[in-house]
Design a protein around this nucleic acid. Structure first.
Lengths: 241, 241
DNA sequence: GAGTACGGATTGTTGAACAATCCGACAAGG
DNA sequence: CCTTGTCGGATTGTTCAACAATCCGTACTC
């Protein structure tokens, strides 16, 4: 078997077995802790704390911080360290302005591509399953996946990547909300209905429905964030001796 | 004057005076060298070389590399170092697929916003000036700025940032082309004509013109890149003693 | 000529050190 | 009371030196 054939047989992804730097691994664990909610927005991340907690060197932790900052999961201030980002009302407005611009492109793709609509239905099913299990965080994840699948259908890796990042930011906003159920449950049926409109080829109705959902979701977030202005990032210091 | 008033008067941006880490400065100088063409695509960047050339530590250089990798100006392979990215024909197709999706959003914005059209005209003037000076690189820069201004008009920082990165990537592709003049000169008049269509409110004609320009530009790039397959990144080693 | 082992070169990671900066506290002054 | 200046601990920014892991060209074997 030639080398090329072997590579074909193994397929992509096999090559990248453990091919990650430790900095990336550190970033990955921190990312999970953040999206879990274990490290809520505003939490300060001291280099030394992460160093001792994960048993890696400080330089590696700093590289991991860079990676997370690049994904906007943490903010970085010179000589002031990194902290889990808090999403402001203004940020939410930016996020939804972008969604209103970009997501119609996904609608166009879904109108053309039946196989894409099939994958959308799969996400609706996943959301429904999570909802009947009462796992509202999973419902939110499935709902976001629904929109991501739709946007990725437009066939631009750049747009898809941007939207992935946007969703990560949005998830941070979700973490700052009190009632997860009210935040995610309504959109399971909404997404289902959207797929039906897409299947029926009702372009205008689909766009209208989508923007309606976006408006509603934005309102929900702003209702909380506008009345709870930027919480001072004031983590308590250890008591002096 | 109250504290709040003072903050208003100073405004945002004043706080960030010289607040940059040295890693960011290193990244900035490398970025300039790359977009200048001083470091052509494919050039390998050894850590030690940059360390001694710029007089900073290796860790700092590595942080700078991360920043550049994040902007896709350099590629990073594990244990294989960093090299200035070479843009393949496939990459160009991706870039233009995205442009065809996103730039119509900018057209809509320009149709609505007269002040935006004014800024577009300014970019056309700049391109014209550079053209009469024979500075084709500057013409290319102004042309790219034209499109960036248009896209930024749609009011999404996410989309604008994505497009900025896209343009940086496109500039890398330009560096791999032989005839800069043929690459940039035609689009000065084209952009001028596009602004006229926008001023006249001829939406459909503007979109058609824009996509036509995109098609032409993509063809030019692919004509070269398709016939000059990925140059093996094989920088000569220093002769062994 | 295909496959394989060696060795230099480069990157990945660590640990310690020092300078620069931030932050809170405390005192002085209006 | 509020503002202003100063001090000291804590944290970050940066450098340096070292070692392990990996890549790559070369030479060697068959």
């Amino acid at each position: 078997m030639s080398g090329a054939d072997l590579a074909d047989a193994l397929g992509p992804g096999t090559a990248a077995l453990h091919r990650t730097t430790t900095a990336e691994q550190v970033a990955e664990t921190l990312r999970r802790r953040i999206t879990d909610g274990a490290l809520p927005p505003g939490t300060r991340l001291r280099e030394e704390a992460v160093t001792t907690a994960l048993g890696v060197s400080r330089n590696t932790v700093r590289e991991a911080f860079r990676l997370l900052a690049h994904q906007r999961l943490v903010g970085h201030a010179l000589h002031r360290g990194v902290h889990v980002r808090t999403v402001s009302a203004g940020d939410v407005r930016e996020l939804f302005a972008t969604r209103r611009l970009v997501q119609p492109l996904g609608v166009e793709a879904a109108l053309r591509d039946a196989e894409l609509r099939e994958r959308l239905r799969a996400q609706v099913m996943a959301a429904r399953a999570a909802a009947s299990a009462g796992d509202w965080t999973a419902v939110g994840t499935a709902n976001m996946a629904f929109h991501l699948v739709m946007v990725s259908g437009c066939g631009s890796v750049h747009v898809t990547e941007m939207f992935e990042q946007l969703i990560a930011e949005l998830r941070l906003a979700f973490l700052q909300m009190p009632d997860e159920r009210a935040l995610h449950e309504p959109y399971v049926a909404a997404n289902d209905q959207l797929v039906e409109l897409l299947d029926a080829g009702r372009r205008t109705a689909a766009i209208t429905a989508l923007t309606g959902y976006l408006d509603a979701s934005e309102r929900q977030l702003l209702a909380v964030l506008d009345h709870a202005p930027p919480p001072r990032p004031a983590p308590p210091r250890p008591a002096p001796p």
